[in-house]
Simulated assay, not measured.
Amino acid sequence: MTEKNNNTSGAGEDTPERVVGTPTAEQSVVTEAPAAQDDHGGPYKASETHVWPEEVQRRGEKVASLWFLLAFLGGIGFLVSYFVFPVDEIADPQIGQYSNMALGGSLTLAMFGIGAGMTVWARKVMPHYEVASPYDELPSSAEEKGSFSDFFMKGADESGFTKRPLMRRTLILAMVPLGLAPIVLLRDTGPLPGDKLKNTPWEDGMRMYVEGTHRAIRAEDLENDPYGMISALPAIDDENYPHGISLNDAAKSVILLIKVPEDDWKQGMEEEIEVDGESGQRLNWTHNGIVAYSKICTHVGCPAALYERTTHRILCPCHQSTFDASDAAKVVFGPAHRPLPQLPIGVDDEGYLVARGDFTAPPGPTFWDYAKD
């Protein structure tokens, strides 16, 4: 952003534009800058260095240091808020709201304070001059390499970092809590799930309900629609469903029931799999064209809840991983690396769809360290 220098002496048209926040001719002390070309479009001549008066620099140092102190308090507030609201209690809506406000507000203050302090530092303490140099060969000469240390220290001195201890110390102080925050947040990663995903609530003979309802699913519910799809959960507690199933159990056991016409099955459904000690083709663990797959995407765990009937493609909306329901839910597109696990199904004496065991593989993201047989 620039502003015109309105010179009423008649030379205004020849006066270059001045960058807002840089010293005017009356405010600055002009000294000789390192040799550089003068044919450039900057607000200053390349041979001039504009330096704020010492009084202005001191005032800028104090303002920048104040912002750094606020950033430090914000960083401390973030760490305190993290421990005041335990992770195992933020599921409560009220506690979670206060936790988000405290964490977000304190982190915002910390980041904004550092940014504002650095801006004041650059605008009111550092000198301003134009530097231009012609393009030359990229490799540096031995003399240039040897002078790097002197050049670096000169830049540090001009920036005020070495001779403005108040500003330097408060900046370092503000960065300490932010440096500790990532270490503290590692606590949220928790232990690896190990073999917790290997076993889900599904077991032989367990009925399935339409997700979010108390309606058990019959085979004809899907047979009446040759391209149907239903999202379902295990009937763990018939009396209290859907409240009888925990969020953890629901997250790893939710399934998609899909009706695929007999002629549309592909070669992948002829693969041999083993369920509770019994082996057979994948088609043996379907019922009249109805197949069940885990709804949890094997990429990062999003719900793969979109289904394209004409192509039998299951789509995860998060990162567009796509699976073929007619070909053992193999990946046909996207970042996922393994198929959706299949749930063996059948029907009971009353015609309700039931599980015939647990998933053929642990559901969930591939990067989890699930146990192997």
Rank of each mutant, 00 (worst) to 15 (best):
I236H: 10
D263F: 10
D204S: 13
A250N: 07
A232N: 00
I230Q: 05
R168V: 00
D195R: 09
P182E: 06
L247G: 13
Y241N: 12
V176H: 05
L178S: 14
A181G: 01
T213P: 02
A174S: 15
S253Y: 00
D237C: 06
N240H: 15
M167W: 01
P201I: 07
D221N: 13
P242C: 03
T213K: 02
V184P: 08
E270K: 15
G190E: 10
L233H: 07
A181E: 12
H243F: 13
D264G: 04
D195M: 05
A219W: 01
D221M: 03
P182I: 12
A181C: 09
I236Q: 14
S231D: 02
I172F: 09
H214V: 07
I230G: 00
V184R: 07
N248V: 09
E270H: 14
M269Y: 14
A181D: 08
T170L: 11
L173D: 13
A251F: 05
W202S: 01
N224C: 00
M167Y: 03
A216Y: 00
A250H: 08
L185N: 10
M208F: 13
D195V: 02
M229W: 08
E220K: 12
N240P: 03
P193E: 11
K266I: 03
G194Q: 12
P182R: 08
E203D: 09
N248A: 15
D264V: 08
S246F: 15
L180F: 15
S253R: 02
N224A: 07
L185S: 13
P191R: 05
V260D: 06
E270S: 14
S231N: 09
E270G: 14
L257N: 04
R207H: 07
T200V: 09
P261A: 01
D249P: 13
P242L: 02
N199E: 09
E211H: 10
S231A: 08
E211S: 12
D221L: 03
T200F: 01
L180N: 08
G194M: 10
G179N: 04
L185D: 12
L192S: 09
